[in-house]
Design a protein around this nucleic acid. Structure first.
Length: 276
DNA sequence: CGTTGAACCTGTTTGC
DNA sequence: TGCAAACAGGTTCAAC
């Protein structure tokens, strides 16, 4: 579930509280939670967390030691969390990694992930660049409108699939794709190359507005998302369509929200959302 | 190239 | 009331 706004909320707390801290040691419960570079694990002991960034829905820690630097990429998947020391959690058995810190307001940072859809990557600069180029598309918050529009006009598939394609635009998942399309008044099955310029500009503006608004709310907490200090988000209170099958469209058109079961369930209003 | 579906997972919700 | 099946979904991979 963590999509861009949730990961951004996690990022902001991490930057505030663990940036510049030295790693004392790292404990790993299940080895297979480290997808790549498990043999690099000892290197990180004594390294300094020099920077933390978000790429799409993943978090990138830049770690420095002596002259060298290495990267730690963390996918949250669906149920992944970073938690500060002392934050209560159910199912402690799902804590797969603990980063013990030397100087910080939190002496440890736990990586918890019940469903284990997310993984950790320990990468050198070369491997990170390679992964980055292969996996991440444009950032929805910093992309120029014309670059975004040009990319959509090249796409042939369904618009919702485009928005969720991380290699095109990185960070939007099922919740925000549905919410953005409803607010922009565009059908999830509209095709990008047939939309009018005006509609594309509206889509761009709506995408940024929805994501920014969700970040201010600290993300959406549907089931159990929370930031490292244990706080939930509140953007779910403003959802218009996600998981609202059968309820009346909030635009007041009198139509009920429908759900298409194909492709990760699309929720939409058949009246307000146009194919063109 | 685009699209679809399966696989990976386990806590929660739904249905009988 | 209890149990089993369905569901949730980000990413990767295979197949068409």
């Amino acid at each position: 579930m963590p999509e861009l706004p949730e990961v951004e909320s996690v990022l902001r707390q991490l930057r505030r509280h663990v940036l510049g801290t030295t790693i004392r040691s790292i404990w790993v419960g299940r080895q297979d939670i480290i997808r790549e570079g498990i043999d690099q694990l000892p290197w990180y002991e004594g390294a300094c967390i020099q920077d933390i960034q978000r790429y799409g829905k993943t978090l990138l820690f830049t770690c420095e030691k002596g002259q060298g630097s290495q990267f730690l990429l963390a996918e949250l998947g669906m149920t992944g969390r970073f938690l500060f020391h002392g934050v209560p959690q159910k199912f402690a058995v799902h804590t797969h990694m603990v980063v013990y810190l030397a100087t910080s307001h939190t002496p440890e940072l736990r990586y918890w992930n019940a469903r284990r859809f997310g993984r950790i990557y320990l990468l050198n600069a070369h491997d990170w660049q390679e992964l980055r180029g292969r996996r991440f598309g444009l950032d929805p918050l910093s992309v120029e409108p014309m670059a975004f529009i040009a990319l959509i006009q090249q796409s042939r598939g369904r618009l919702k699939a485009f928005l969720m394609n991380q290699q095109k635009i990185a960070g939007i998942g099922n919740i925000y794709a549905n919410e953005i399309l409803h607010r922009a008044g565009i059908h999830p099955h509209a095709s990008g190359n047939r939309l009018k310029k005006k509609t594309l500009h509206r889509l761009f503006a709506t995408m940024q507005a929805v994501l920014q608004e969700a970040i201010v709310c600290g993300g959406s907490t549907i089931r159990d998302f929370c930031t490292p200090d244990g706080s939930p988000g509140c953007f779910q209170e403003r959802h218009q369509v996600y998981q609202k099958t059968g309820t009346f469209c909030l635009r007041g058109c009198g139509t009920r929200i429908r759900r298409l079961s194909q492709e990760r369930s699309a929720f939409f209003c058949p009246t307000c959302q146009k194919r063109r």
